[in-house]
């Protein structure tokens, strides 16, 4: 009995020590303003209007200053335990992946890899936190100085979670490369302090995500305003879902930004970082895992099927009506 107790205690300690939350991916991306003002852009016609979009591949291939700044930032972030996702490699991987999928065929039947239009659309470079970067080498008489602007943007909530901006000291002798390195060194500690605040807030109040509930067009049995009976209470489906969010978010924190009979847009949903699964293991929670619980609740208690559509670590859609 004593042995069993000790083993149980050790395994509990192991779970609590080694279980870790899901680490957000971070990638430096030159801002639209930087790309377009430096000529790294492409134009195309859409609905009769000319749109100008940044050309990241051209920027990475032709701008040594940009590469130098990204490398320096990557080095600092790796030292802090957060290696950055590299934009250039990501773009290259995407091109190779597309070519491989087009060429891949089954050896027995010659069948190609199944890919829906959504899979193709989702094949874009992305990260959970985007470091939106722009800088400019300016002149003031014989002196040169750097203006630097770095914003940490949560890709799902579109909130700025950290930032650093300012101008360096003017110098007539330092090379632009040296001034750029100085700008990165000068701003990264302040930027990382902002990032740290964001992570501490996440562990204290839960990860902030967005959830959208939608309805399949061919669900004839009802919509989000149809009454369902659960736990002796007859309420609209929308209200049952709201109740579930209240019970399962950290401190009941979420806001229903928009609601109709076909749509619920839930923002600032604070989901727990960790949870214990059915086998007693403590596991990291992402939006998919969180929304899966809602899906299970709807299936088991209200008899409604649904499907989850993932939009990354921080956003998921639940489409109710059928799988």
């Amino acid at each position: 009995m004593k042995k069993v107790f000790i083993i149980l205690l050790i395994s509990l300690i192991c779970f609590s020590v080694f279980s870790q939350a899901r680490r957000p991916t971070i990638m430096v991306v030159p801002s639209d303003q930087y790309c377009i003002s430096n000529g790294y852009s492409m134009e195309f016609e859409s609905m009769g209007r000319t749109q100008t979009l940044p050309d990241y591949t051209a920027a990475m291939q032709n701008d040594p200053d940009l590469r130098m700044v990204i490398t320096k930032m990557g080095e600092i972030m790796a030292n802090r335990g957060f290696p950055l996702k590299d934009l250039e490699m990501e773009l290259r991987n995407m091109q190779r992946e597309a070519a491989e999928i087009a060429m891949l065929a089954s050896s027995s039947s010659g069948s190609q890899v199944a890919e829906t239009p959504i899979d193709v659309l989702k094949r874009t470079a992305g990260a959970d936190i985007i470091l939106d970067l722009s800088f400019d080498i300016r002149r003031q008489g014989p002196h040169r100085y750097i203006t630097f602007n770095l914003r940490g943007l949560d890709a799902y909530t579109s909130k700025q979670v950290a930032g650093a901006a300012g101008s360096g000291a003017p110098s007539s002798s330092a090379t632009p490369e040296l001034l750029l390195e100085e700008a990165v060194l000068s701003h990264m500690d302040g930027f990382n302090a902002g990032l740290m605040r964001h992570f501490e807030d996440m562990f204290e109040n839960g990860r902030e995500v967005n959830v959208m509930v939608r309805v399949w067009d061919n669900w004839y049995d009802g919509d989000l305003e149809t009454y369902f009976d659960f736990d002796g209470e007859e309420k609209e489906l929308l209200e049952h879902i709201e109740d579930w969010f209240f019970d399962n978010t950290v401190q009941g924190r979420f806001s229903l930004a928009d609601a109709s009979h076909t749509l619920m847009r839930l923002e600032q949903v604070r989901i727990p970082m960790m949870r214990v699964d059915n086998r007693g293991r403590e596991r990291a929670v992402d939006t998919r895992g969180f929304v899966s619980d809602l899906r299970r609740h709807l299936r088991q208690n209200l008899g409604i099927d649904s499907q989850i559509y993932m939009r990354g670590l921080g956003e998921a859609w639940l489409i109710v009506g059928e799988r």
């Binding site: 870790q20 899901r22 680490r23 957000p24 335990g81 957060f82 990032l195 740290m196 992570f199 970082m273």
Partner: peptide
């Protein structure tokens, strides 16, 4: 030596690492 100092405090459990908890 700012980075060395930060690493020392992290190693001694006084300061939190940026990737703490992940």
């Amino acid at each position: 030596m700012y980075d060395n100092l930060r690493r020392q405090l992290e190693a001694d459990g006084i300061a939190r690492r940026l990737d703490h908890g992940f």
